[in-house]
């Protein structure tokens, strides 16, 4: 390596480290706040160093029913993921395998649905749920999340199945496999990474949503995102308690994405290469 390219490489790494600091420090600050004693949070001027404590977590667990909040979040994320995959994966398959001109149109229809501003659907959906008596339950949040997620999964699986050679199933079909058997035993395993990516995005969208949950759930069915918002507005809840509560909302999803990073990146960049 020449001196010049070595210098260039060092500069590049330096720049990346600075960039990383920019993107990670704010998050680390919130994470740290949860281990600060209250007097360190409110100290003027703000201190960077402090004695770590778990008081804020104790507070958070005392004030909030964290178990039920996390359970609601899990129900919403898990429920909408399962339903969306059940609806979206077969649809993506059918659209990719059909040679009918309408199939492409339906695929684009799914893509457009994902772009709709949430409120445009939320207000009428809210009234619809009120009329059928589902308002206040996490089920209604699952149902509306599922609209966006199903559309997204169908579109994404459409592109995954399209990249799969048709010959694979055709061989299975000539071997006397039923059509569903060919889909289930041959095509589905071949797009496993697409299904993992779809599931990941469904969980990410629904876990992180709070607009739908804020208006469609009640006190006993609200997920952790909504609890965070209401906690923020309350006077006797400190930033530390908020930081502790935010742990339960952010740490699981960040860990899941870090572990499944490969699928996350692959899913996001599908359609470029």
């Amino acid at each position: 390596m020449t001196t010049r390219s070595l210098a260039f490489d060092t500069a590049r790494r330096g720049f990346l480290l600075l960039t990383l600091a920019f993107f990670l420090l704010p998050f680390l600050w919130l994470a740290m706040t949860a281990y600060k004693p209250s007097n360190a949070i409110f100290s003027i001027p703000p201190h960077l160093f402090f004695e770590p404590t778990l008081d804020q977590f104790r507070n958070a667990l005392k004030i909030f029913d964290v178990g039920s909040l996390v359970l609601s979040s899990l129900m919403i994320a898990g429920g909408s993921m399962i339903l969306s995959l059940m609806l979206g994966v077969p649809a993506g398959y059918a659209l990719a395998r059909s040679s009918h001109p309408a199939a492409m149109g339906v695929a684009y229809f799914f893509m457009t649905i994902r772009m709709v501003p949430a409120v445009a659907a939320l207000i009428p959906f809210y009234l619809l749920m009120r009329d059928i008596g589902l308002i206040g339950s996490w089920m209604s949040v699952v149902l509306i999340n599922c609209v966006l997620n199903t559309a997204f999964v169908s579109w994404m699986m459409f592109s995954y199945f399209r990249g799969l050679p048709k010959e694979l199933e055709e061989a299975a079909l000539t071997d006397g496999c039923r059509q569903f058997g060919a889909f289930w035993k041959v095509s589905l395993p071949a797009v496993r990474s697409g299904i993992i990516a779809s599931a990941l995005f469904c969980v990410l969208f629904s876990w992180n949503d709070f607009l739908f949950a804020m208006f469609l759930t009640r006190l006993d069915s609200k997920p952790i995102s909504v609890a965070l918002l209401s906690a923020y507005g309350t006077k006797d809840i400190t930033w530390g308690t908020l930081g502790a509560l935010a742990h339960f909302s952010t740490v699981p999803i960040v860990l899941i994405v870090l572990v499944l990073n490969r699928y996350f990146v692959q899913g996001l960049t599908k359609g470029i290469n």
């Binding site: 919130l30 999803i253 994405v257 990073n261």
Partner: peptide, 18 residues
């Protein structure tokens, strides 16, 4: 670097507010 993308947008707002 992808961590900000995955954090709940609501929490992102709270982080900067704080």
């Amino acid at each position: 670097i992808l961590i900000p993308v995955t954090i709940t947008p609501l929490v992102v707002g709270l982080i900067f507010k704080g």
